[in-house]
Simulated assay, not measured.
Amino acid sequence: MLILEYKAVVKKSQAVAINEAILTSQFVRNKVLRFWMDNRGVGKKELYQYNTQLRAEFEFVKNLNSHACQASVENVERAISRFFDNCKKNRPGKKGYPRFKKDSRSVEYKTSGWALHPTRRRITFTDKKGIGELKLLGKWNINTYPVELIKRVRIVRRADGYYVQFCIKIDATCESRTSDGEVGLDVGLEHFYSDSNGHHEENPRFLRKAEKAIKHAQRRIYAKEKGKNNRRKASWRYARKHLRVSRQREEHAKRLARCVCKANAFVAYEDLNVKGLVRNRHLAKSISDVAWTSFRCWLEYNARKFDTKVVAVAPHYTSQKCSNCGNTVKKGLSTRTHNCPHCGTVLQRDVNAAINILLKAKNTGGHPGINAWGDVSSTNVGGNTCKSKKRR
């Protein structure tokens, strides 16, 4: 599934209509979820029947395209299925009980409710919300794909405006690699990653570099009077700075993952529990800033694209074990050099761990990366997904 994203040129009246459509989609989702909570045991059929009742009862719901309402029901259905699957598998911790949405930022249309202009540079939304025709800005050429392959159209609201996403169903195409090497990756905070060949990739620290400007923008919000336009504008400036940082992280992870998979036939990396690591209040900000999860996600995607095998291995004792003789050499986090007293091997700590990760993956097989492509679902609207997303 390919996602093409365009910036939309939106008038004030159209922005109001889009926001109304987003709120209506959120309303349908929350009402259907409440119906499921109050009537345990109801199935998929009953959820869609209740959606039909909502369209008959509320005029503003009827004005939204019927397929957009169905997409909101699909969101609830997937959330319920995921919750029950986690319960059946006895997943440790929270099982992901479905929750209400209070700040939705997107509305999703399926195969109706929209029409592309013959030039494919404009799109018209034909439901009764009054969105009308939107001009699309972007260099990607959607003319190369038949309209029949467009399975979803989303309108996403972000801090810097509105975007239109086209979800196109196409088969994956493999590209040739430049070489057939093998590499182990040890991610960290000092370096973004260190590989088994001795290369250290610099950690860009996007949030740390922008933190001063972000804090200044945040202070300017509270300097404005509540309920005034100046306060709202200050909030938008603050949100745009965070959006820029998140995009920098995503593009950086995407670029590095592509380079790694293009140059290697076998890639081993750590199977880290990032959710558990960010509970450390001293390192939470730095761990979030380095974006390990996004990097792993793009590794799995590019592995499919370049026919590269990626394997995740448990990180236990990869830093303590000597990569040459296999003996354990205990060291604290402040010790950055691995110096083995048994065989005399001297390596940078992270390089030693990367070699151990590669050896462990080749010996045990690890956990091969899965769900590298997956299916586009309504639950991923507007989010940073691992699928091929092209932006302007």
Rank of each mutant, 00 (worst) to 15 (best):
G161E: 09
C325T: 15
N230S: 15
P118R: 05
K321V: 04
D186N: 12
S377M: 05
N280M: 12
D103N: 15
N302K: 04
E270I: 02
G366Q: 03
V376L: 07
A353R: 00
S286H: 08
R91S: 13
H242K: 10
N352T: 10
A234R: 03
V153P: 00
K209D: 07
N380S: 14
T144P: 00
N280I: 06
D350P: 01
R240F: 04
V107A: 05
K233R: 14
D103A: 14
I80K: 10
L47G: 03
T52W: 02
A253K: 03
S378T: 12
I214L: 09
P118F: 00
Y97D: 01
G227V: 08
E182G: 00
I131Y: 04
E46D: 08
H117G: 03
C325N: 14
I214W: 06
R208A: 13
K215T: 07
L347T: 11
I155T: 09
H200G: 09
E133S: 07
K262D: 01
L358G: 02
K226C: 09
L54C: 07
R120L: 11
T385F: 10
L134C: 04
S25K: 04
D375T: 11
G43S: 12
K135A: 13
W140E: 05
I170T: 11
I170Q: 14
V10T: 14
P92K: 15
L116F: 10
T318G: 03
Y163P: 00
T345H: 15
E133K: 13
L136H: 05
R247L: 13
Q348A: 14
F58W: 15
D289G: 10
R122A: 06
G382W: 00
E20M: 09
K226Q: 09
K387W: 01
I155C: 05
E59A: 14
A263I: 01
R152A: 03
S377H: 05
N86H: 13
A354V: 02
F100N: 11
V278R: 09
N203L: 07
W373F: 11
A291T: 08
A314Y: 02
L359R: 09
Y48M: 06
H338G: 08
V187T: 10
L189A: 06
T318V: 01
Y238G: 03
R120V: 01
V313Q: 00
P341I: 15
N324S: 15
N65Y: 01
L359Y: 06
I355V: 14
I150G: 02
T144F: 05
H200M: 14
C261Q: 04
G382C: 11
H216V: 11
A353K: 01
K128L: 13
V381N: 07
K11M: 11
T144L: 06
A15H: 11
S334F: 08
R208S: 07
W36P: 00
H367I: 12
K285T: 14
F125R: 04
N280F: 04
A257D: 07
R177K: 10
R296T: 03
Y317F: 10
K262N: 08
G344M: 15
R220W: 07
N229Y: 02
S294L: 11
V351A: 06
N356M: 06
